[in-house]
Design a protein around this nucleic acid. Structure first.
Length: 1035
RNA sequence: GGGUGAUUAGCUCAGUGGUAGAGCGCUUCGUUCACAUCGAAGAUGUCAGCGGUUCAAAUCCGUUAUCACCCA
């Protein structure tokens, strides 16, 4: 059955993929013929995600390397799987629940909800896996992993031990003191009501405002406020009873603990150490705060004075820590003004006492009082400094109200109204001659990368990895070259981040994830009354921590602890939280059977998803069990990933693998860039410029999409993707397809020739050499992760060499050649086209496999042997001869084209002079030249007749007698132009050769090449000059 | 503010010291039996500017400008 004119990608792709999978072509070790292993870990996509351009790019590159190694006989494993993606998955599930009118998660309860998320996971999983398959990804799906496999509550089919690995690592790191819990300022997402890591925060510049307020000095004190210019001349002097503060977040004023100025700022020197009043809140309980000095305020910015809200700003937090300023929390987990804790009145009084104590200490120590160890910062968590009027308000609503209230009281800094005063009497009544100073200002605002709401710095108890203690091996490994990061520039990014690493907050206030394996119990300690021990008691608010893989082991730790503390206790069970534990325990203590029964409660938080994906390399291979796969494939070979997760993932995998198993996770990290739209914009749903890889695969076929991405994969550069480009590579597939159609029509015997044939004809010998060259080029390119070089080498070879020239050359031989010529040409064609399929297969797996399968073969192409032939196939004589033939054909075509010789017209060619090599080349290839240049005949002539065009080639001159078709002027212009070009080139070459310093300094080889070039150009120049002279003479 | 990178044909981009390339687009021509998703021919560049190193610079160094990204 004759082949179709084009490859039907849509019909063939799924059929081919199924065939590969069914035959087990992708399973670990398939087609292995040597001992070396090659293992790639897929960057696990979110289980609820769908394939975007970045995935398509990332997985295409992985697939190329994997297929290439598999064909080369490596024991290959491409380990697939998905990531449980804590926040994202919980979000998707809750959205789905809302859409189906299911009860919300709080109503449902944690256990039921987690069950529900598992259902969502199972439902979603197939989406992205199916999409990866459509792309052609040759992963070993029988090993598909999941970062939460085997977790408690995992349904049937979700077994596995990833959860065990994660928990084991947590406990080990905890026991080594590398994980700790602490109250810290963290990034809080008020939408999801969880902490997130600083990497999950996007800082976006938005339009904001800067308000200016007066903080009156306590007791109506005044001071001389003096401003000077650069030369020290006084520019302003006035008596003030306030200090001016600028802020972009007025609602946080309620939680101010101090006002800070720079120690060198002379303007405020008179009032340092004094107290000032926060200009908001009920008048009778206005809060006083001290004026302190710190290096943080910039005297040149704003008024030079900064309000310090330690519980709601990272910079302020540091200032507060340095200066013993309490951290007053104002917001609840939803980002609303707190309504819990003490009344405003009581809180304000207590806070006022701290401020006075601070000022007193400052005075007593003459300003030296700094160190927190001298005077611990008081715990102020139960103080709620939100006045009752603002309690429960949303943070942005509170801001509006506070600004209005301060302005109404006349404590906003005022400026002259820029609007002209109205003429009209009536209108003038409502006119404000001065208005509050509010500057429009671009401010960087943090947003949650998932929730898109404004992130709040929030003071909460969280778990942290003490990254500073485990970072060093990850740095050393890359420095020493044990692990290679490509391209070079990303190594710098990696170092820069690791060398300035912050503690990693790993707890999340979610339900979906690995619940932290920590149980708490009340401390059992001395009960003091009036400084005297009056007995022992349980303390619930400063609990004891028991970290263990499961409750049974935590229980044992607890019982050991209580035994040591001197109380005989039986841990009876788990309570939901501290309060329930207290209730159950107190019910139990002292009562018969339940005497001394005691309850622990588990930390409700789950681990950051990246904590588990940090263990991906060992976890997917079965660790902590000593599996065969772990022994064989770990450390893995290459990690291919986008630059956007170097910090999230790569750095953490490095740290964790070294910390846990003391080995590198992979030899090489290849970091690729971002896929952008054709204008260079980042693809984003809100911009609507997203190209869906699935749509593109539908339209152009997976091969075209893959080839496009590969050809644009130059290291370190972003990809700007346009559909036009993809169409171009779809055409390339069609070109390849039609080359096979041609071969089929000419009865080319595919599948019989494993080793290269040994033909006699120069064209055949030439294409063998070209094939060997491109094979070497492709291997070298892939070896160096220069994917684009591999793609362009193959594109140029298949289209530019095989299709444009070799196929055309083969036609006269196949049609009019001798039997021997026909046979050897068919054999060569069969071999060369097979090589095209093999070499292209890693990039374009589908169309190549389809073509390969046109005839019966022992193995599918996916398992074909990758060739190793080399230089021995290159015949320099054939090379020179065919290049001469091509140059002559191009010369003739060029003249024909420029002289507008009708395409159909066959012309006579005159040979004016020709050297021996040229004569041989002509004799060997006359039919080819005649056919491709549409030459009727060749005859020798002493000189070109009038009205002919001249063609100069290496070693000879030809002429096309075109009297009546061309005019002399056109020919002169053509020759002039050619001559000019040659003259320019020759000038450059000779300039160099004449320079004695060039001869002294340049490499001998360079000099030789330059001389050869110059000789060639000189010869060409001479031929052209002769021709031009003749035209002038005759014309 | 700190860091990283980019600037090459109309567009998108390759090009690690030897005198600039590809694809697309454009112009002209073409129903020759693989392919019009094609073929043939053609035009188009102060390699961002300035300075330096070198026999030789798109390439190395310095600097300016513009743009992009990352981190504060």
């Amino acid at each position: 059955m004759p082949m179709e004119k084009t490859f039907d990608a849509a019909a063939a792709e799924s059929r081919l993929y199924d065939a590969w999978e069914k035959a087990g072509c992708f399973t670990a070790g398939a087609n292995a013929s040597r001992a070396e292993t090659f293992c790639v870990m897929i960057p696990p996509p979110n289980v609820t995600g769908s394939l975007h351009m970045g995935h398509a790019f990332n997985n295409t590159l992985q697939d190329i390397l994997v297929r290439w190694h598999r064909m080369r006989g490596f024991d290959t494993l491409w380990q697939p799987g998905t990531d449980h993606a804590g926040i994202a998955t919980q979000m998707v599930t809750e959205r789905d629940m809302a859409a189906h009118q299911e009860p919300d998660r709080r109503t449902m309860g944690r256990e039921k909800f987690v069950e529900r998320v598992w259902q969502q996971k199972i439902k979603s999983r197939g989406t992205i896996i199916g999409q990866l398959k459509r792309l052609g990804a040759s992963c070993d799906w029988s090993r598909e992993a999941f970062t939460m496999s085997g977790a408690p509550g995992a349904p049937e089919g979700e077994e596995g031990n990833f959860h065990d690995a994660v928990i084991k690592v947590f406990v080990e790191l905890y026991d080594k003191g590398l994980i700790y819990r602490g109250k810290r300022l963290v990034n809080w997402d008020p939408h999801f009501e969880t902490a997130i890591s600083d990497l999950e925060v996007e800082n976006v510049e938005v339009d904001g405002h800067m308000w200016h307020f007066k903080y009156p000095l306590a007791g109506g004190e005044t001071y001389e406020y003096v401003e000077t210019d650069e030369d020290g001349n006084e520019t302003l002097r006035e008596t003030r009873d306030y200090i001016s503060i600028a802020t972009t977040r007025p609602e946080t004023m309620l939680g101010d603990g101090a006002v800070a100025v720079h120690p060198s700022d002379a303007r405020y020197a008179p009032i340092v150490g004094k107290l000032c009043e926060i200009p908001v809140g009920p008048k009778e309980h206005r809060r006083l705060i001290p004026i302190i000095t710190d290096e943080y305020p910039d005297p040149k910015f704003g008024s030079g004075a900064v309000k310090i809200t330690g519980a709601h700003d990272f910079n302020d937090y540091a200032v507060a820590q340095r200066n013993n300023i309490p951290l007053y929390a104002l917001l609840d987990t939803k980002g609303q003004m707190r309504s819990d804790g003490l009344s405003y009145e009581e809180s304000a009084i207590r806070a006022g006492e701290y401020a006075r104590a601070w000022a007193e200490m400052h005075r007593a120590t003459e300003g030296r009082f700094q160190s927190p160890t001298e005077q611990p910062v008081p715990d102020v968590s139960e103080l709620n400094l939100v006045p009752e009027a603002y309690r429960g308000l949303d943070r942005f609503e509170a801001r509006k109200r506070i600004v209005a209230d301060i302005t109404a009281e006349g404590l906003a800094v005022m400026v002259k109204n820029p609007d002209p005063e109205p003429e009209d009497e009536a209108e003038r009544a409502g006119f404000q001659p001065t208005i509050p100073l509010v500057e429009a200002k671009k401010i960087m605002q943090p947003f949650g990368d998932r929730s898109k709401v404004v992130i709040e710095p929030m003071l909460t108890d969280q778990w942290f990895v003490d990254t500073a203690k485990i970072v060093q091996p990850a740095i050393d490994a890359v420095r020493s070259g044990e692990v290679t990061i490509l391209p070079e520039q990303d190594r710098k990014v990696y170092f820069n981040w690791l060398e300035n690493i912050e503690p990693w907050c790993i707890s999340r206030q979610l339900w979906w994830g690995h619940q932290i394996p920590v149980w708490y119990g009340a401390r059992y300690e001395d009960h003091l009354r009036d400084g005297k021990v009056v007995g022992k008691r349980f303390v619930y608010d400063d609990q004891k921590t028991f970290c263990a893989p499961d409750f049974a082991q935590a229980k044992k730790l607890a019982e050991d602890y209580y035994a040591e503390s001197g109380v005989s206790i039986r841990v009876a069970g788990e309570a939901a939280d501290a309060i329930e534990a207290w209730r159950l325990s107190s019910e139990g203590v002292g009562e018969g059977e339940g005497k001394n029964a005691y309850y622990l409660w588990r930390d409700p938080d789950v681990l950051d998803t990246w904590f588990s994906s940090g263990l991906w390399p060992i976890g997917t291979l079965g660790w902590p069990e000593e599996t065969e796969e772990l022994k064989k494939y770990f450390p893995t070979s290459v990690l291919i990933t986008g630059f956007d997760i170097i910090f999230f993932w790569v750095a953490r995998m490095m740290m964790m693998q070294y910390a846990v198993v003391g080995q590198r996770p992979f030899d090489t990290v290849y970091v690729h860039a971002l896929v952008r739209d054709e204008k260079g914009k980042k693809m984003s749903k809100s911009l609507g410029n997203v190209l869906d890889p699935l749509d593109l695969i539908d339209e152009f076929g997976a091969d075209a999409v893959r080839f496009t991405l590969t050809s644009m994969a130059a290291m370190g550069r972003d990809l700007k993707l346009s559909t036009q480009r993809i169409a171009g590579y779809r055409n390339f597939g069609t070109k390849l397809w039609n080359a096979f159609r041609f071969a089929e029509m000419n009865e080319v015997p595919f599948g019989t020739q494993g080793t290269p044939p040994a033909p006699e004809r120069t064209v055949n010998r030439w294409i063998l050499g070209e094939t060997a060259k491109v094979r070497a080029e492709v291997d070298a390119a892939l070896e160096g992760y220069r994917f684009n070089d591999a793609a362009s080498a193959l594109y140029g070879f298949v289209w530019g060499k095989v299709c444009d020239w070799y196929l055309e050359f083969s036609k006269p031989l196949l049609m009019d050649g001798t039997d021997a010529e026909k046979a050897e040409t068919r054999a060569t064609l069969a071999w060369v086209l097979d090589q095209c399929l093999i070499l292209l297969h890693p990039i374009m797996p589908f169309v190549t496999e389809e073509l390969w399968g046109q005839v019966e073969r022992p193995k599918m192409l996916v398992h074909a042997d990758w060739p190793t032939y080399g230089e021995d196939l290159v015949d320099p004589a054939a090379d020179a001869e065919i290049n001469w033939v091509i140059a002559l054909i191009e010369g003739i075509r060029s003249v024909r084209g420029e002289m507008n010789v009708p395409a159909a017209l066959k012309v006579d060619l005159l040979q004016l002079d020709l050297d021996e090599a040229g004569r041989t080349a002509w004799a060997n290839n006359a039919p080819l030249i005649e056919r491709l240049a549409r030459v009727e005949s060749l005859s020798e002539a002493p000189e070109a007749p009038k009205g002919s065009a001249t063609i100069a080639v290496k070693g000879g001159t030809f002429a096309l007698p075109l009297a009546g078709i061309i005019d002399a002027a056109a020919e002169r212009a053509r020759l002039d132009k050619a001559l000019q070009k040659v003259a320019k080139e020759l000038g450059g070459l000779n300039g160099r050769l004449k320079n004695p310093k060039f001869r002294e300094n340049a490499d001998a080889q360079v000099i030789e090449e330059t001389e050869a070039q110059a000789a060639l150009k000189a010869e060409e120049q001479a031929r052209l000059e002769t021709a031009l002279a003749r035209v002038k003479e005759l014309g």
